[in-house]
Amino acid sequence: MKIAVCIKQVPARDWQPRVNESRTWVRDEDAAFEMNEPDAYALEEGLRLKGRHGGEVVVCSAGPSRVSHVIREALARGADRAIHVESDGAASADAFEVAGALAEAMSGESFDLVLTGLQSDDQGFAQTGVVLAERLGVPHATIIMEVKVDGGALRVKRELEGGWFQWVAMPLPALLTIQSGINQLRYATLKGIMAAKKKDIRKVAASGAHRSRQRIVNLYAPKKTKQTQLIGGTPAEAARELVKRLRDEARAID
């Protein structure tokens, strides 16, 4: 089975974003970057499917040159080769632009299965995978918690709201957006890291034919509406005051 896994490189979760002068994007020169978490689960699922059914896992990522770090990491975890769609704009682009560029780079590969994370930790569009499915002309399902492949058919467990699930079958080729927690992640071994150095990364220039449909015109810290009582002091002082207020004011403890 020929499996593509789409991966986005995003700023690390504990990074405090700073807004640029025109208030249209962030200044991320000082950011540390990491693999978008749901994408890491998608990669792991791809590697497990390859383990069961054979074939290859190809990592696809659109972004500036720094994206090569997450590509190398994916190769070190066991992906066979990679496609890097080179685009400085991809980091701030919308899902249409990214999915369009990915679809272009993936054409001619004839993947049996394309996996993406269900959304990214930066802009969180939750669209790229589904738009990509349409561009590739394949069926899809979202928020997937289990994948079974039987011959040319796929049976997947969709997460629904509030603890509900549903199995959905569809033919291959197909695209799935993967939910965090579907599996337990593996980490790269030293052997994997060494092997990754020899793996092929095909670089493709984004054609620029796909433009974003949405544009940020103002970026700011969310407005505060709630009057939270912030309790200061040393940890001991804050603890004493909190317990007092929970007892006397909120009557939340005895």
Binding site: P11, R13, Q16, P17, V19, V26, D121, D122, Q123, G124, R211, S212, R213, Q214, R215, I216, V217, N218, L219, Y220, A221, P222, K223
Partner: peptide, 26 residues
Amino acid sequence: AEADGTVAFTRLIFQGKLAADVVLEG
């Protein structure tokens, strides 16, 4: 929200750390 006389839509990005007013094109 509003921007340049048109409607903008506010969404939260970067895990809720920033709010973005977005205008739609096309």
